[in-house]
Design a protein around this nucleic acid. Sequence first.
DNA 1: CGAACCCTTGATGGCGATCAAACGCCGTGG
DNA 2: CCACGGCGTTTGATCGCCATCAAGGGTTCG
Lengths: 228, 228
Amino acid sequence: MRSGEKPEIARLPLFRDMDDTLRERVFSGSFLQVFPPQLVLFELGQRADFLHVLVDGLVELSVNSGGRDTTMRIVEPVTSFILAAVVNDLPYLMTARTLEPSRVLLVPAALIREVIRQDAALMQATMRELALAYRDLVRALADMKMRQSAERLGNYLLQQESQQTAAGTIHLKGEKRLLASLLGMTPENLSRAFSTLASHGVRVNGGKITIIDRDALCEFSRPDPIPV
Amino acid sequence: MRSGEKPEIARLPLFRDMDDTLRERVFSGSFLQVFPPQLVLFELGQRADFLHVLVDGLVELSVNSGGRDTTMRIVEPVTSFILAAVVNDLPYLMTARTLEPSRVLLVPAALIREVIRQDAALMQATMRELALAYRDLVRALADMKMRQSAERLGNYLLQQESQQTAAGTIHLKGEKRLLASLLGMTPENLSRAFSTLASHGVRVNGGKITIIDRDALCEFSRPDPIPV
DNA sequence: CGAACCCTTGATGGCGATCAAACGCCGTGG
DNA sequence: CCACGGCGTTTGATCGCCATCAAGGGTTCG
């Protein structure tokens, strides 16, 4: 891939501050690939061959073990994923699957590791990214351990609302069953959780959610006091 | 603190490969402090002032929010903790409390951040450490979402056994109520989970656990196929 | 138009939380 | 030295959240 082709990749926090010629080297050694929906990009247990950057589309990261399955993250463009497996050259802990037609930049793991060693700015950005990802997971784990399902949904909605453009309105990506799995519940109970939130300021219309009473939702969900 | 004082700190993966004079600079700017049990070292929401290294004793990292409380990690010597908050200069997401009389090395956050910028080996070690910690949390979250309580306990025991010296024998650190909170259950249910595991090759004697039938425990707990 | 499939709603059951009480351990004070 | 009280653990009883099973409505796609 050539560098100018996808300026939004170069603008990612991960790549933004690094040396231009090294960035060019990374991109020219990588390739942009198009995938149909429902395609498995890699599976848990495989050696981490590529750092992935989702350019367009939607990807699910899930863990499956012993017949059970749970989605760990929904990746939206433009974001890199599985950085942690790549930097330490360890097997993937998750399986990645496209949910929509997607374009993914595949950066060979050995290449990115080599350039990380050469470029302090890239290494620092990697370190920061990992630290932020770690903190996200700390929150997610505490959420799962301390809150019950409707509260988790409420907090998810509040968090989504804060980082989507239109205030008070949220568009769910993917199917509701996916959100259910992300929040650690069944589709049936997600549906019931939405009905519960109806009495706390939330209106649902398909994949479009409206928060008509933010205060009521906050009081019910007791969101994390520390901002992200 | 002087450098030769605590060679096992210098041998930590985090500090092992860095430049000697810079390591000396880090240690000389830090101080080793002794704390009594049950003392709060820092609280969730505070600005991260120090990178902590537990030299001796036992520390609990917990999250408390909305009247609820859950322990996220039990820190044993010699280990650093809350690296993620320090590198990004963000508030702590967890509260730290000593469980036993403890000695902790306090490294000023600004100092460690400065030296990280100067020393590529330290930065790389930080990056690796964060990536490994991230992967641990991915496992912990998947564990919490997919397994029920007795299975979680079984896996915890198998994991502890593999990283403690004596094969087949595990010494729990801290009280059982602490382990219960770490595993996301109540003390009552931890007790019941131990009884369940009695029919799967586990014997309990106070804080001393013996795995008398490893295969049976594995079959019951279905441990993660991917090694740590 | 029919067949999947997803979402929703209802009925039932199980895991785990809560409440309650008894036991054992340990440190204190009589 | 022993009695007592506090605390953690264990065991039992009950309750509530959520999973599971089941069925019906809506949408999409062949």
